[in-house]
Design a protein around this nucleic acid. Sequence first.
DNA 1: TACTAGCTTAGATATAGTCTAATTTATTCA
DNA 2: TGAATAAATTAGACTATATCTAAGCTAGTA
Lengths: 140, 140
Amino acid sequence: MDTEAIKQSLDGSGLRCTPQRFAVMAFLMEHNQHPTAAEIFEGVNRLDPRSSRATTYNNLRDLVQAGLVREVAVEGRAARFDAKGMPHHHFICDRCGNVEDIAWYDVPKPSVSALGPRKLRECEIILRGLCRQCASKKVS
Amino acid sequence: MDTEAIKQSLDGSGLRCTPQRFAVMAFLMEHNQHPTAAEIFEGVNRLDPRSSRATTYNNLRDLVQAGLVREVAVEGRAARFDAKGMPHHHFICDRCGNVEDIAWYDVPKPSVSALGPRKLRECEIILRGLCRQCASKKVS
DNA sequence: TACTAGCTTAGATATAGTCTAATTTATTCA
DNA sequence: TGAATAAATTAGACTATATCTAAGCTAGTA
Ligand SMILES: [Mn+2]
Ligand SMILES: [Mn+2]
Ligand SMILES: [Zn+2]
Ligand SMILES: [Zn+2]
């Protein structure tokens, strides 16, 4: 797990590398299962350093703003997070809400006329349906 | 505004056409600005019939499940809804969270190998950036 | 009519996330 | 270095969003 790389990327984004902020990044890089803020908070506090709930949320907000972390909103559930590594798409399960990575493939952009005066920053594909586990379960 | 069509589509989905449920559908068909549940609740209660908050949420849930309404989760904000009419994509503003329609264009599906045993239901494109209004405003 | 399933309701409750004000930690620079 | 300043952290109160509960109310059926 690349301590130096994390420091670099925080530094490069103008964010101080505090123990709490570092811990959030490190946790996300070790757990690519799209944890919620509550899970990150719990995971980080299982070891040192301690981090408050407010700090965990603050740092997630800062990391998302800096473009180092991605936030995935899931209808009716807590947001999920992942460290932006290799580009990939997301599959969101209709039933359990889990978010899974799908290998990247190219996304067609809208025409200039469809976009109008809007400033496009990114263009993502969201796949929906039943995840591995839920697809294999019987009934409703 | 097509009263009969709403009744038909509710009926066809096995949902009784109650005044409250009808009002939610009618409101969504008249307001394609992706209102939140709170806005729908308020809008519906501005006229007859009265509908409680619980009923508004219940009906939105039922309509989404029936595939008549789409729910759009927006990070850090209330979910937004629209009646599923013509297929289209969504542009979500980074700054103000507004959701705008973008003319439909075809979305490439993932390869079977990337998808694995998952059951794919739909495949949508989400565009992000600054909406018309926010793009034209200066500074942070 | 009586029965039933589906629907609605007010208000309590749960969950997710933000804010405040005080404190701690790091950085700047005299 | 030490003083001043800026940035980050904290506990816990607070807000926003959404769901649940339990009782009552239709509409459809017999
Ligand atoms: Mn991911
Ligand atoms: Mn729409
Ligand atoms: Zn699932
Ligand atoms: Zn905007």
